[in-house]
């Protein structure tokens, strides 16, 4: 039927990875400062390029769900890979020429767990968090795909963040 559907998981992975690579390069060219960029910015153009406009509503909905979930999975893999490396050898801080971000709020695997935790409490909130944070959908569009009002989406987001916040806090 539609091309996106016929794509297997591997192809999607590859596409996400390639898009991310290109985009990361582009994003880094901008002045980097904390709290101004988001992962959603990062994937914004990937979606623009995928021209989902040709897809039916259901296909679009499916596509975004899949993309967000895949994105999350890829990132968890990165994070785990990094952790393994860290355990392997002591990594020196080689150069501070470009400066690093402040101490992280949490590492990604913790956030991943927090989203899992949220999913156990309220599946729709978790989906909302995924759609908003791992794709670049505007909230109104995300609400449409989720079949809720914008106000409900905002409530779900708020609830989701509070759950994650509490979960992360309890971890540390």
């Amino acid at each position: 039927m539609v091309e996106v559907r016929s794509k297997n998981k591997e192809a999607l992975d590859k596409e996400i990875y390639q898009q991310l690579r290109a985009l990361a390069r582009k994003m880094m060219a901008k002045e980097r400062s904390n709290h101004t960029l988001s992962a959603t910015d990062l994937v914004h153009e990937a979606f623009a390029k995928l021209s989902v406009g040709d897809l039916s509503f259901n296909d679009q909905q499916h596509y975004f769900y899949t993309f967000a979930r895949q994105m999350r999975r890829v990132l968890v893999n990165y994070a785990l890979h990094k952790k393994r490396q860290k355990n392997q050898a002591e990594i020196l801080h080689f150069s501070d020429s470009l400066g690093l971000a402040d101490a992280e709020f949490a590492d990604f695997t913790q956030i991943d767990q927090a989203i899992d935790h949220l999913e156990n409490i309220d599946e729709r909130s978790a989906k909302t968090i995924e759609l908003v944070y791992f794709t670049h959908l505007p909230q109104s569009q995300a609400a449409e795909y989720l079949g809720v009002s914008l106000a409900t989406l905002e409530r779900d987001l708020k609830f989701g963040r509070v759950i994650i916040h509490e979960y992360i806090d309890n971890l540390s």
């Binding site: 910015d41 890829v74 971000a101 963040r161 994650i164």
Partner: peptide, 18 residues
């Protein structure tokens, strides 16, 4: 739950580091 920026940052950092 005001962790919008922090969440975004961690996700971005992870993407880049990865």
């Amino acid at each position: 739950g005001d962790i919008d920026a922090e969440l975004s940052q961690v996700i971005l950092d992870t993407a880049q580091e990865g």
